[in-house]
Amino acid sequence: MSLFDWFANRRKDGPISQERQEREIADGLWSKCEACGVMTYTKDLKANQFVCVECGHHHRVFSDDRIHQLIDQGTWQPMNAQVQPQDPLKFRDRKAYSDRLRDMQTRTQLTDAVQTGTGKLDNLPLGLGVMDFRFMGGSMGSVVGEKLTRLIEHSTAAGLPVVIVCASGGARMQEGMLSLMQMAKISGALERHRTAGLLYIPVLSHPTTGGVTASFAMLGDIIVAEPQALIAFAGRRVIEQTVREKLPDDFQSAEYLLKHGFVDVIVPRTELNSTLAKLIRLHQPVPSSPLKPLHTVSNHHVAIT
């Protein structure tokens, strides 16, 4: 066999044929990284919290996996899972909203674009909301607004810190003004949570845009973002049309927002759990002794419990 033949044969068999590759991606056995193109065994990708082992690209995480990643096993108590979306405007674009909802529910097994509940993160009790981009682009309608508001109200009453993992295209147009008003409703609940002296940390994942950015995503006591997440108020295309010039590549990335002072810290997903735990612990009252070096303890210090 000549060297030429050997190459020819090799090309014929190929290590993995295109067709087989696609079939196995479709089966979900393998995942192709959209950033570096490397194929990873899906189980390995999941074990690494959907962060590419090769290049560190953060793939999208759906709400179930996210809850699994953040909450201690056996402590998750879902809240208001029975809250269902309706079609108050009888909205119809190219498809009826009610049909869209039914299809989405069947496909995702979710009721709407957010899961809420209480649980423990590294043994710390908290209220957690996780948006799910699969469900109509994580858009915020009445159900997202109501569930997050109830979560925040419950956490205020129970004295719990709140973490909300954001992933959303913005307000849900199919519910019109009812969607816009959810921005105010959630912000009002956060005002009460804040007045009660409690900690709120939004985690901005890819993408966090529109009405979510213009409300609870930007209202954190501490704002955490995932690497390279898109965080925007207006969409890139809209801005390019308005200003008629090309925007810088990193525009509206988590890194860009950090640079401009609108995000406090960028945390790789593999460190998110431990970072959140650290942040929450740093905000817990010191149990006993006041600051040690003090020789005399004033009443002011004692009062802090």
């Binding site: 009002g188 804040r194 213009a214 409300s215 930007m218 209202l219 108020f233 200003v243 925007l247 525009f251």
Partner: peptide
């Protein structure tokens, strides 16, 4: 609507609106 521009994003259009939503309740 709020201005969808380059500078507006850089100066935190989302944050500015969000802050007003919360603080008007107070």
């Amino acid at each position: 609507g709020a201005f969808p521009g380059y500078e507006a994003e850089e100066l935190g259009q989302g944050e500015a609106i969000a802050y007003n939503l919360r603080e008007m309740f107070a």
